[in-house]
Structure formats: C-alpha cells, structure tokens
Amino acid sequence: MKADLPVIELEGVAKRYGTVEAVRDVSFALPQGSRVALVGHNGAGKTTLMKLMLGLIRPSAGSLRVLGEDPAAGAAETRRRLGWLPESVTFNPALTGREILRFFARLKDEPAASADALLERVGLGPAARRRVGTYSKGMRQRLGLAQALLGNPRALLLDEPTTGLDPEVRQGLYDILAELAGGGTTVLLSSHALEELEGRVERVVILGQGRVVADGTMEELRHLARLPVRLRLTLAGSGLPDWLGAAATLRRIGGQVVELSCPPAEKMALLHRATADARIADLDLLPPTLDELYAHFLRGGGEPGA
C-alpha cells in the first residue's frame, strides 16, 4: 500500500528567512526508486529544500511529506530510513573512519558489522583504521556517503556529492547510486554541474531564485528549450559556399573553420547541403550543451510545464 505513494512529496513549499525568500512555491513528487537531480546555481535553494525534507527546518508555507510523514515531526522510524550527505561535512579529524561510521551506525540502531561492510563498499576498507585527518577529499566524501547509506535508506538526499571528486571516484559514486535506485531507494542529488548528470539521473529539476524553473527528463528539457544546434564546418578552399547565406549566425573560428548555429528544425536540410558540397572538408555537429540549456532556463526562457 505504501509502495505507490510518492516517497517525497512537496506542495507549494516556501521558506523565508526574514525578508529573504530561500524557496518559493516548490511542488514536486518523487516516486520510489527514482533518481532525480536538483540543479541550480549557488543559493538557488537546493540545500534549503533538503533541510526541509529532513525536518531540520520548517516550511513557512506549504506542506511536505517524506516517507508518508511530516518530516518536522521527527519520527524516529522515518529518520532511520533517510540518508543525508551534507554539502560540506568534515568529520572530526582525530577519529578513524571506522570509529566515525560505527558511531553513526549505532545511532541508527545498526550493527557495527554493517558499518564495516559499507566502508568496504565505498572502497575505504584499507583506510578504515586511519585517522580522518589523513584522508583525501575524495575519501572524506566517500566516508560521508557511507554514512548516508547506513541502514538501507528508502530515500537518499545527497547535497553536491561530486564536487571536488576525481572522475574515477565520481563514476564509482554514480554506480552505487544506480545500484541503490535499482533496489528501490529514491535518490535525490543536487549539483551545479549539469554536464555530468547526463545518463545518470532520470529527471532534472532546475531551481532558480528558489523557484522550480524546469522539471523533466533531459530530453524533455532540451525539447522545451529548443536551443539552436551548432554546426562546425572545415572548408577545403578559401571561398565560402553561398548556401551558407545568413552571415549573421556565421562565425569564423580558425583559418578554415566556420561555425554556424541553426534551429533544430533546419538542421537536416543544412546537413544534406553540407554533405553534398565538395568544398566542405569536415563537419562537426555540436548539440546544445547542458550548460547552455541551464543558462537558458535560468534566464527565464523556458515556461515550466509548457
């Protein structure tokens, strides 16, 4: 009966600090086993939303339910099934990784053995007996992740889990998240690097100034934004083919290389011409990057839900 209910549900949530509105009228629901990214610039309200979901702060307006309960009520059973990785947590450098994780495990009523197993899982097994002060940034982040994974959480909130991590560790982190989502855990992670989320999450919620400016899969967002595709042509000769026509969108990059942007609808027609023309030596198609997409939505170009 509980399975079909959304794990996390927000309705018209707002949070004000004095005159500052950190979060305004945010509504979304995350079903079980989904992987969702909260994307926004610094101060867009990502961390505030997570704190609201954890019940650390109360909303000024609206209501939210996490695992079917009001998180601010602080029911122990709900909290035990929630994992959180804060944005910048540094554990006491004097303790070892194992001591810290065992401490958190006991707080969640988990056996110490589960803490050791998690350390192995995030690849900290060999460093478990070393002091956290000797850990690298990636290792500290992995210790934080292990902490969030304690007690098989049904919902996992990760606040910028990949900032400052090298590509290999990042890859490992996303693999663990995929595994967890497969097991029915709802994963919500925040990020400001849209680029790396491609293929890692099913849904992206873009926040700007505390509001949801866009919500959907990557494909849907691209479609909504209708950003121009960029075409990079390497010319064989010096002369420009006349069909390139509209010089306004044309940009010379190097000696023989020009770049032009065209709306997605005209892309194929342009490609047909370019491939038929012997004066074009090479051709690169650059789809709009996620960063462009992000910038587009933050400028207010996209109508949410349009």
């Binding site: 704190k51 650390l56 122990a76 804060p86 947590v89 540094t90 707080l107 902490q147």
Partner: peptide, 18 residues
C-alpha cells in the same frame, strides 16, 4: 561550536535523536 562548524551537528540532528 566545532561540531557546528564542521557540519556534523546538523547531520546528528538529522539522525533519529531528539
């Protein structure tokens, strides 16, 4: 204060503890 500055105080408060 150290616990707060390190960010572990908030983390503790998100645990099943009063």
């Amino acid at each position: 204060v150290g616990e707060m500055e390190r960010g572990t105080m908030l983390l503790l408060l998100s645990y099943p503890l009063a």
